[in-house]
Write a protein that binds this DNA or RNA. Structure first.
Length: 206
DNA sequence: CGCCGGATGTCCT
DNA sequence: GGACATCCGGCGC
């Protein structure tokens, strides 16, 4: 699409629940391989958040979340899945926004090849691990600056403006299960289905 | 729609 | 040592 350019870092400087809806409609791109997707669903995580990897302080794994906004926090979970977050906020604050779902902009053949021929259209980029997998994102991408033109994966915007933003509880978190920090483009058919954690904390919506 | 198991890193309850 | 994870695919009803 014409007019695409890297996101301004100032867009990411606020707290993650404020920044999260701003990421809807932005483009995650790997120009060197010709792929690009438009983000349609995200979740915020921050330091005062029992569901966040940073809740118990800084560790080697989560250190990137305490660093500069615009870098990629990539984590491995359930022994097999990679997921990607965009770090937000000022340095020293452990917060980020998880990229949960997207739609194809460019490079469908490359994206599809990574996910396998059997995958249905609706499952290609729906869910954080599927999204990361389709774009070839893994631990090697951890910590890269998404706003640096030299990075293999980058965050950009074009003229698109999301029509309306909806919010609701995050998917699959056990603690603070009802905090409404998931944001998506209202009515979009490719937003991931809400799955409450099997053992979600029922006594504490916060 | 619901249940279940996979396979491994992280941080301890 | 061990519980659990910002999940997904397969299978059964």
């Amino acid at each position: 699409m014409t007019g695409r350019r890297l996101l301004d870092r100032s867009v990411l400087q606020g707290d993650s629940p404020v920044v999260a809806p701003r990421l809807l409609g932005t483009i995650l791109e790997r120009p060197e391989e010709g792929t690009a997707v438009r983000i349609i669903e995200v979740e915020a995580y921050d330091e005062d958040d029992p569901a966040s990897h940073t809740f118990r302080g800084r560790t080697p794994r989560n250190a990137v979340m305490f660093g500069a906004a615009g870098h990629a926090y990539v984590y491995f979970t359930y022994g097999m899945h990679w997921c990607m977050n965009v770090v937000t906020g000022p340095d020293g604050h452990g917060q980020a926004v998880l990229l949960r779902a997207a739609e194809i902009v460019d490079g469908e053949a490359v994206l599809r090849a990574r996910r396998g021929d059997r995958v249905r259209d609706r499952d290609l980029l729906r869910g954080p691990a599927r999204l990361a997998s389709a774009l070839g994102i893994d631990g090697a991408m951890g910590g890269v600056d998404l706003l640096d033109p030299a990075s293999p994966v980058r965050l950009a915007r074009d003229g698109y403006e999301p029509p309306a933003v909806a919010t609701g509880p995050r998917v699959g978190v056990r603690l603070a299960a009802d905090r409404p920090w998931r944001f998506w483009i209202d009515g979009h058919p490719l937003v991931s289905r809400y799955v409450r954690h099997r053992r979600a904390d029922e006594s504490n919506g916060d």
